[in-house]
Design a protein around this nucleic acid. Structure first.
Lengths: 190, 190, 190, 190
DNA sequence: GATGAATGAGACTTCATTCAT
DNA sequence: CATGAATGAAGTCTCATTCAT
């Protein structure tokens, strides 16, 4: 009855969404928040109507991008921080992932700017989720679990320093990031 | 009705331009590159037509902002780096200035993103001026003057790391920046 | 897999077209001219590609709807007006039909607005057919057959009044229309 | 100091809003809910950017139009119904006003369709205000104040009948409405 | 016959910029 | 000098329509 089966359609949808999200992350790196839907569609090799077939609007797309990335980010915390692995190893892993997956970099970048370029009701949600899923686990690994409300601050500073440094090569779109040097600069003491 | 003297007019102009530039920097910190001329005018407590009385257009204004800031940045290099003062002192001085003067922070922030959100012919000019006026002096102070074309990289990494960290409090618009902790994290070895 | 017979296919087509036309009329009542093809398909419980399997485009569908309704409307005129039946009975019959068949109501409604929301070349055709097939027969029954070019006006006024009143319950989608009261109000003198 | 005084600006704004509302009502009569902002701007002899200078969007404009018209409609109720004036006089007055002021006709027209073409949260507000400000006063004048929840129904039927009839000439954009004949048809018994 | 993924024309809306006062 | 009304280029987004399966 159905000319394409439900499964076929689902497969198409999954693939397209992947294409679009990847394209959006690349476009963000290139143009910043002013990226246009046309750019994203072109980067994904799709008509721009198609992007709207999958996402209601620009911020809906960005939202999905960030939520996916947050899933990844939380997983990394679990893998590297809760199982006795060192903070240094975690930092180096982050640098590697950012280089290979722009969407993950975009998440950390926006987080360091407190998601200030996003429309507000949503921004607050991301701020909170990022803090709980990424910052706090790192803070705990740093052994700085005091009841001081600024206890997360050090963890955030490390992330922000790494993001700042990594940005230099990400925005230059050069394949080689000076990961060794960044690690020495920022993670030498861990 | 009574016409103003030339001097009075000049004084007004100077004050207005200061108002506008400060407002623009604050607005950039708040909203990013998508800041609107209306926002800037409102932040400067001026009618929005007035901004155009002083600046031909948005990028003209941004240009002036960045050029002013570059003048300052170059002066800082001369003061702290060429006269035997330490890299650490320079870094701490930067943090202090960024906290007090948003326009200086904006310059360094855009520089770390290679001015990618600016229209291109102009962006290249800023990239070059920033490299020559800020990065290279720091690289020289670091004693890394080799003929390696990547010799400036380490200097840029330090700046980028500092900007990333400083951004945390700048974007939060909190008066207190954790300058001590940032200095230990990034400048400990100098 | 087993191919269907010609008769089976024909039966399917007929049923589908009925589904679609009914759905279109209901959707028009609900949303007005801005009804979407998706809405119609959903109301007909069909995939939205399917509607295009039967109708080339939106106005082709609307055209078919109105032509079918016009056939009905003309038949009603013949039944109630040419055979000595009273104007009042005709009016009451109209109210009953509109309540049960949205597509008939849609026709009269659009007619009272001179089909102004339809694309123009086509609108004129409907205006003319409605006048000849519905208005003039009623005008003749009213005994107002003068050569006065405005002789149809009274007939049209009665129809428009009835449509206005009937709309109250049709748009409210309530099953019970106050047919008695409407008849007294508008048809009392006939 | 101010190049145009506050009063001058206010005068301009008032005039422009009048222009725009008038143009919007005329355009609605011509094209229905699918009227375009371009059409409205053109009809008002303004650039379409100007319309957005005064109204955030299409439904904001329509909202203002309807609220203004509701003010008028409520005033008419007070003038004709609460002071012993007859229902018939009220009906005839309505016909006259609709002919001269399209925005008033648009209000009654949309009301008879229960504002179904407006976005829903807002539509409900208009439904309620129209009922309280227009229908109920008429119902009371009709002396049909029973506790029957359908007591307003007769009043609404009269309005709907008048709107249906008046529409014939309004949509035809003919200057002469057959007010006498409509009055005899619908208001003869009052 | 039936479906929904894909698409772009065209409408909606924003916002930098001009201009009259 | 100062202002805000006026404007349209350039984005955003909707939705009728096409098309592969």
């Amino acid at each position: 009855m159905t000319p394409r089966t439900k499964e076929q359609n689902e497969a198409i949808r999954t693939r397209r969404i992947g294409q679009i999200l990847r394209a959006a992350a690349e476009t963000y790196v290139l143009k910043g928040i002013n990226m246009e839907m046309r750019d994203i569609a072109a980067a994904a090799d799709l008509g721009y109507g198609t992007v709207y077939h999958y996402y209601k609007n620009k911020y809906d797309l960005l939202s999905d991008l960030l939520n996916m990335a947050l899933d990844e980010a939380e997983k990394m915390g679990l893998n590297y921080l809760s199982q006795g692995s060192s903070v240094k190893a975690y930092g180096i892993a982050l640098l590697g992932r950012w280089r290979k997956d722009p969407s993950l970099f975009v998440l950390y970048k926006l987080a360091c700017e407190h998601f200030r370029e996003l429309p507000e009701p949503e921004a607050a949600v991301f701020r909170e989720r990022f803090r709980q899923g990424v910052i706090t686990p790192l803070a705990e690994a740093l052994g700085t679990i005091t009841k001081d409300p600024r206890s997360d601050e050090s963890a955030f500073l490390i992330i922000a320093g790494l993001v700042g440094c990594a940005g230099l090569s990400v925005y230059r779109r050069s394949a080689d990031m000076n990961e060794q040097e960044i690690a020495i600069l920022l993670l030498g003491s861990f």
